[in-house]
Amino acid sequence: MPERIIKYSEAIQEATDQMMGADPRVFIIGLGVSYPKGADGTTAGLKSTYPERVFDVSVSEHGFTGMAVGAAINGLHPIVHHGRVEFSLLAADQIFTQAAKWNYMFGGGHPVPIVFRINVGRQWGNGPQHTQALYALFGNVPGLKVVIPSSPKMAKGLLVSALKDKNPVVMLEPRWLFNIKQNVPVQLFSEPLDKAVIIKEGAEVTVVAYGDGLFSARESLALVGDTVDIELIDIVSINPIDYKTIFQSVKKTGRLLCVDTTNGAFNVGSEVIAQVARNKSIKLKSNPVALSCPNVPCPTSTALTEFFYPTKVDIANALLSTFKKPLINQTLSFEELHLAPTDTIQ
């Protein structure tokens, strides 16, 4: 089958279009979703194809999210789009207390099939109030399934799975990745909502990452080369976390490095490290390493954000340092540090 290279944002749009065509219960609601290039292109053209199932709304996050939760309880399958994670917090009660708990409150017979698409993370110049990711906040909520697509193919497959699931699913989408490209099958396909993926097999160290952190970890592989034999894992889901895959890998390698693109306190990587440390069957050869952002709000100035997020050089040097290998002395360009990538990945 010939390759078909599309962007991350286009993969989300395609999955939405195909699932709306296959299932009349699916509808989408959110700010700007009816625009010609709505929701950063992820809902482009859907209003003209499904005029009765694409709902643009006023700035009323709590209200329209609650409407969608009620629709899900009554048998529809909404997609709720929040263009920034900070805006979704205005609907926290509906997501964390209503959608996530409803089925548990009524004996397991009242599912809430709803998908919350939430944009997260870095974007040039967005500063402290529009660059948060808050992964740990969503990962900590019982009753939610929480996934983070790291590639166009994963974005399409996970959204399809989410729209076939009977539970509330949160898809946290790093805006940084919206323009990366990949070969994505045109037909409908699904990816498991609870399974980590081994991107590269290796024998000496396990690297666990997700989202835009995984993108940087992929880039670091070329810098390290054959110096260290790295096993790279895309965690995919942070609720639940696929510890079986991680444990098997760390048992083999004896070393662990976790990459987060959010603040270091209470993050996904620290949780993974804690669970590995508690596993008595794992014998570590060195202390686990955690790379993350500082415990301060993300600055706006590029002179400061240059040092905020873990880069491919940071990851490569953390790996080389673990093995007491010579470090890489490389200065990244302004474009590499501050402009969202447009690479085509495998």
Rank of each mutant, 00 (worst) to 15 (best):
S270C: 13
K153Y: 05
S34Q: 10
R175H: 03
N287L: 11
A155R: 09
S220K: 03
V115R: 02
F116K: 01
T16D: 04
A203N: 14
G127Y: 12
S333V: 11
N239Q: 15
I180Q: 03
D93M: 05
L144S: 09
L188S: 13
V296N: 01
G213L: 02
D17A: 14
P192I: 07
R218A: 00
D93H: 07
M19D: 01
I79C: 05
T300F: 15
S9K: 15
V26D: 06
R4S: 08
I241M: 14
P185F: 14
A39K: 01
L221H: 05
G213Y: 02
S60G: 03
E3C: 02
S286Y: 00
Q13L: 13
G264N: 11
G157Q: 03
K251I: 13
Y135H: 15
D56A: 05
T43F: 07
N126Q: 12
A316V: 12
L193M: 13
D343I: 12
G202T: 06
S34A: 15
Q187Y: 11
T245D: 08
G21D: 15
I230P: 04
I118T: 05
K181G: 06
V115N: 03
T131K: 02
A72T: 05
T43H: 05
E231A: 08
I241G: 08
S292M: 09
I315A: 06
G75D: 14
I315E: 04
E3V: 08
L221R: 01
K101S: 00
A162E: 02
A316T: 13
K195D: 03
N140S: 15
S161V: 00
E173S: 07
I5L: 13
Y210A: 00
A72S: 07
V207M: 00
T305M: 07
I73D: 04
E191D: 10
Q94V: 03
K252M: 12
T300K: 10
W176C: 05
R84Y: 08
P149C: 09
F116P: 02
A92H: 10
H62C: 06
E219Y: 00
K145L: 14
N267G: 15
V170R: 07
Q330V: 06
N140Y: 10
L332I: 12
L46M: 09
T311N: 06
P36F: 09
F308R: 13
R84V: 04
M171Y: 01
I328H: 13
Q123K: 08
T322G: 10
E231V: 08
R84T: 10
G125S: 01
V184M: 05
T65Q: 04
L337S: 08
L144A: 08
